[in-house]
Design a binder for these strands. Structure first.
Lengths: 213, 213
DNA sequence: GATCGAACTGCCCATTGTCAAGTTCGACGT
DNA sequence: ACGTCGAACTTGACAATGGGCAGTTCGATC
């Protein structure tokens, strides 16, 4: 499935890297990120237990690569949502699009999403991960700057925090199964997501009002 | 350390339950929730490796009890923030207080906070956990209902989602070490938290504006 | 003094990560 | 076409760790 069209003999099956990453996703979905083991991944990929070493080094390397892939997909989802906008879309629409892309990514790649933010499992010194992990925030930051260019640093930080935290929190609660009946039927979840984004964008576009107690 | 001053003989040291829960908190802080093991907890509590069984049954029972304790503390923090308000506090102030309590809890009990939302580690069928986990949401829900009583069901869901997700996401990102420089110095984090809450309350108090694209 | 729960010791079994060889395959130079 | 080389993969083993289960011992309470 989705193996790059290369070899498929007993050895060198060519897509082991992708197969192992796919196995990680499976396991995360079934039993959570802490249940991922090198051996189980190898088992699901149909290879022997230490076949991952040439590709990822050790376990942390595998998880880090998986997280980096997640970062790339997240950025791609956000960019896709932006690209799907009409040319004339305003800054508010663009900020909303980043949020929709974020939510779409989390829904389409729950395993990546859940693993990406597990600090203990990832080697943050990995350059590939650092680059992948930095992109999404930059996209959000740019969209925000376009929407509210006149804000001072403090107000901008507050709005970045609101937009990011709200969307991220929504995805997290949903992925982790919390949230009770708030977004129980799937259709309702989409509705809530849309309204949530509208509220965020409206709040971010509003003029600064310090001390709005 | 921090054992309630009771017995200290070889057996029945009287506060084993609390000592084990404290050990869980320590381990979570040092190495993350997945590093918690029954044996290590027992080690830190100064008891033998299977001393936890009479109190918690198995590992899942220990983690579930820990999560339930977290739920209780979270509700207590929110209630404390509400109680600290002046009598004349309005609905907006009360909603803000629940958010402050939530954030204060996450900051004061990072270990509990990180473990509470790890679905795979917890036995959701446990009645004690169910009760403890339900309280915080009820407090938020009440505060929201008082602030915006005239909203229809959909608009109320959106605002609940915004308030909860934003505060929760903020705490999550902070606890997990994400967020780059947004809330790097501690003083700045408090500033961002305060502004964030102000934005949330303002957005929740605003009149419904469907389709605010 | 008997009883019951709490806690201890010892043990078994399963699992895992990692290393150290072998083995096979594809590629490359001649 | 053929030999060689290196990387991908395999098998096997090792040490560590962890969870859980007896059976036992201790201490308090009745």
């Amino acid at each position: 499935m989705s193996v790059t069209p290369k070899a498929k003999g007993r050895h060198h099956h060519g897509a082991l890297r992708d197969a192992l990453l796919a196995a990680v996703a499976e396991i995360v979905l079934e039993a959570g990120p802490e249940a991922v083991t090198l051996r189980e991944c190898a088992r699901r990929a149909g290879v022997s237990h230490s076949a991952a070493a040439p590709h990822f080094g050790d376990k942390r390397g595998l998880l880090t690569a998986f997280a980096a892939e997640g970062g790339r997909r997240l950025a791609a989802a956000m960019e896709a949502a932006l690209a799907a906008l009409p040319e004339a879309a305003g800054a508010a629409e663009r900020l909303a699009a980043t949020g929709r892309g974020y939510i779409a990514f989390a829904r389409a790649n729950p395993a990546h999403f859940r693993l990406m933010f597990r600090a203990e499992l990832i080697d943050r010194a990995d350059p590939a991960w650092q680059e992948a992990a930095g992109q999404p925030f930059m996209l959000l930051s740019e969209a925000m700057a376009a929407l509210a260019p006149a804000l001072d640093a403090r107000a901008r930080r507050a709005r970045l925090a609101l937009a990011w935290a709200a969307v991220h929190g929504f995805c997290t609660l949903r992925a982790e199964g919390a949230g009770g009946d708030l977004w129980k039927p799937e259709a309702r979840a989409a509705e809530v997501a849309e309204d949530l984004i509208a509220l965020i964008v409206a709040a971010c576009a509003a003029p600064a009002s310090h001390g709005a107690s």
